[in-house]
Simulated assay, not measured.
Amino acid sequence: MLLGAGIMFHHVITINRGTGFQIRVFLLIVGVLSLAIWAHIKSGDSALHQIVFGSMVVTVGFRTFKLMKTMISNRDMRSNLRRLATWGYVVLTAAYALWLVDVFLCQHLRAIRRSIGLPLAWLFELHGW
Rank of each mutant, 00 (worst) to 15 (best):
G4T: 11
T59G: 04
R63E: 04
V90D: 07
R83I: 14
L120D: 14
A85P: 11
Y89M: 06
R114M: 12
M8W: 03
L109H: 08
G128Q: 10
G18N: 14
A94R: 06
V58C: 07
V58S: 10
R82V: 04
M1N: 15
L27V: 06
F53R: 07
T86P: 04
A97F: 08
Y89K: 02
G31T: 02
A94K: 05
R83P: 03
T86Y: 04
V90T: 09
M71A: 08
V30Q: 08
V30Y: 00
H127Q: 02
R78H: 06
M68C: 05
G88S: 09
V32E: 01
V91I: 09
R113V: 00
A111T: 12
H49Q: 12
M77W: 13
Q50P: 04
N80D: 13
R113G: 04
F53H: 10
I116E: 13
V52C: 06
A111I: 08
D76A: 07
V57P: 01
F21P: 00
R78M: 07
I13N: 06
V32R: 05
G117I: 06
A85G: 11
W38L: 14
S55R: 01
A97R: 01
M71R: 12
V103G: 03
I37H: 05
L118Y: 13
V12C: 06
L98N: 01
L48T: 03
I7F: 05
F65N: 06
M1E: 15
I15G: 00
F9P: 08
V12G: 06
V90Y: 14
G44H: 00
P119G: 06
S79F: 14
L2I: 08
F9I: 02
W99Q: 07
M8E: 10
S34V: 05
W38F: 11
V60C: 02
L81H: 06
G20V: 13
L109D: 09
M77C: 07
A5V: 02
T14R: 12
D45M: 03
N16H: 10
W99D: 12
S115T: 15
R83C: 07
F21Q: 07
A95V: 07
S115E: 15
K69T: 00
I116S: 10
G20N: 13
R78K: 15
F124V: 00
D102M: 05
N80K: 13
L2Y: 04
T59V: 10
G6A: 11
H11E: 14
I15L: 10
I72L: 04
T59R: 02
I72A: 04
N80T: 09
L28G: 02
K42A: 07
P119T: 02
I41S: 12
V60H: 00
S115H: 13
